[in-house]
């Protein structure tokens, strides 16, 4: 095993180009487990800790450019208003110690369906900035997950940043685990209201081979909200609509039975989380509307 220690992004890209089998390691919270337990012996470890700009973020007009290695703790502490869904998701990651090391780049690189960030990224809308010595490209998050623990990266590419749409409405995130802290998701659900475009987006974790959106459920809800004039009248969402939405979210799952939970439970739980997160976000949207109307 060789340990590559690039001091800059350019050096990192060059190293990855030269050794496409090199395994990038940043927070180490996935890679080191595999090494400690003898599950993986990569030829090269590519340490990204010295690439400083991976730890930075910039808030632009419409998006946040989040460096791949920005630790979850920083997201929780600093980006709660811009990226509320991801901030909530970050808070559910493992333990404080892990949140101090791990970042979204690792979740994307591993592309485990259980990665906590995925549902929040899917719901918010995001693009992955991937780069190699050949150049840089933006991969829409919807196209990023290609299979169980597989992603759209080319062997010579590294994840530099994620461009995430700034929240234009309430966002929520829920995760079911069989412990009240430090737990891997049995399943997870992210939901974002986008009042600007009058759309709702979702993300489901750990209930299909890849993280997925519940697009049929989104389409249903978008149409129902439009039809009922909900975005304008700010009424409580009809229980039958919420129920149908929850059912469609559950139907979007394609889960398995494993030691963490049954497929049937995952479907059920995603439905419950979908209904609850919709209620929470919609209540928050209505509250914000009333406040702004009152101010006006």
């Amino acid at each position: 095993m060789d340990f590559l220690r690039p001091a800059s992004w350019e050096e990192a890209l060059a190293a990855k180009a030269e050794h496409p089998s090199a395994v990038p390691i940043a927070g180490g919270t996935d890679v080191m487990v595999e090494i400690n337990f003898d599950h993986r012996r990569p030829e090269y470890l590519l340490d990204l800790n010295r690439v400083a700009d991976l730890y930075e973020w910039e808030t632009g007009e419409d998006t946040v450019r989040l460096g791949a290695s920005v630790p979850y703790t920083k997201i929780m502490e600093n980006l709660r208003s811009e990226l509320p869904g991801l901030a909530l998701a970050s808070h559910t990651v493992a333990s404080p110690q892990i949140r101090n090391r791990g970042g979204v780049g690792g979740n994307l690189g591993t592309a485990s369906p259980a990665g906590d960030a995925h549902p929040a990224l899917l719901a918010a809308g995001a693009e992955v900035e991937a780069e190699s010595v050949r150049g840089s490209r933006r991969i829409p998050i919807d196209d990023f997950y290609t299979g169980v623990k597989r992603n759209a990266l080319a062997p010579d590419e590294l994840i530099r940043a994620v461009h995430i749409k700034k929240a234009d409405g309430p966002q929520q995130y829920s995760k079911v685990g069989t412990r009240n802290a430090m737990v891997i998701a049995v399943c997870a659900f992210g939901l974002a209201l986008h009042p600007g475009t009058r759309t709702v987006r979702t993300g489901i974790g750990s209930a299909a081979p890849t993280p997925v959106r519940a697009t049929v459920a989104e389409d249903f809800l978008n149409a129902a909200l439009e039809e009922g004039g909900f975005w304008d009248n700010g009424k409580i969402i009809t229980p039958s609509v919420a129920k149908e939405f929850a059912g469609l979210c559950a139907a979007a799952c394609n889960p398995i039975d494993d030691v963490r939970g049954t497929a049937s439970y995952r479907r059920h739980a995603v439905g419950v989380m979908a209904r609850r997160t919709l209620t929470w976000t919609w209540e928050s949207y209505r509250g914000a509307r009333r406040t702004s109307e009152g101010a006006a």
Binding site: I25, G28, T29, M32
Partner: peptide, 15 residues
Amino acid sequence: GVPVCACLVAAGQAE
């Protein structure tokens, strides 16, 4: 200064 699990820091990363 930041609390981390030393088991998940590769030795080379502590350089």
